[in-house]
């Protein structure tokens, strides 16, 4: 580098001017917990197991999702439906269904593979926790609670997030209906109930 360039005071001043100007610029930061960014329509977040309109589980325990999963994150143990207690319309249902969300790479292959559109990925993304064990989601947290409807098929999703996944834990959040929405995960309440199981 030539001497002229090394002590180029003008360049230094230009740099200072730029940073000074930037100080007054509008900040693009979104104040995250209170305001949230809109996702792409097919955002891959936390899984959900859907139901039929009559309340029956869609999953038939076929283990296709488990075998297609590139991260080996899904464990399915199927069982025969007993005539007295039909969990799903088919012959079998998933007696155990677990996804290790720490292994999951959110590729959506399980969703693609499922013949009954049972497992879907929702736009929920806030699942941080203190223990690794808490990230193994079993049916108690994956299955849509009966009172919450059936869950939405990926193709039906509106741009953003379905309203039924809206604010539960964060009622105070200042939601900007135009630019953001509240995507606080409904499961924060359920999670506290299942801490004992998961840890």
């Amino acid at each position: 580098m030539s001497r002229k360039k090394l002590y180029n005071v003008g360049a230094l001043l230009t740099g200072l001017a730029i940073t000074f100007k930037y100080m007054f610029k509008r900040k693009p930061t979104i104040q995250y917990p209170s305001r949230k960014k809109k996702h792409a329509p097919r955002f891959h977040g936390l899984h959900e197991l859907r139901r039929y309109g009559d309340g029956k589980e869609r999953c038939i325990g076929c283990e296709l999702c488990s075998s297609v999963c590139p991260a080996n994150a899904i464990t399915v143990i199927g069982a025969e439906n007993s005539p007295g207690d039909r969990r799903s319309p088919g012959e079998r249902y998933a007696a155990r269904y677990e996804i290790d969300e720490l292994r999951c790479i959110f590729c959506g292959m399980c969703e693609e593979a499922c013949p009954t559109d049972a497992i879907v990925l929702t736009p929920r993304f806030e699942m941080s926790d203190y223990r690794r064990g808490s990230f193994i989601y079993s049916k108690d947290r994956l299955l849509v609670p009966p009172e919450a409807g059936v869950g939405l098929a990926p193709d039906d999703r509106p741009n953003g997030i379905p309203s039924d996944l809206g604010s539960v834990a964060e009622t105070k959040s200042t939601v900007d209906t135009d630019e953001g929405y509240d995507a606080t995960w409904r499961g924060t309440i359920l999670k506290t109930q299942t801490k004992g199981l998961a840890g």
Partner: peptide, 13 residues
């Protein structure tokens, strides 16, 4: 705060 502003962040708030 100042460095935050200059880097287009709001800084601790």
């Amino acid at each position: 705060k100042i460095i935050g502003w200059m880097q287009l962040r709001p800084g601790p708030n």
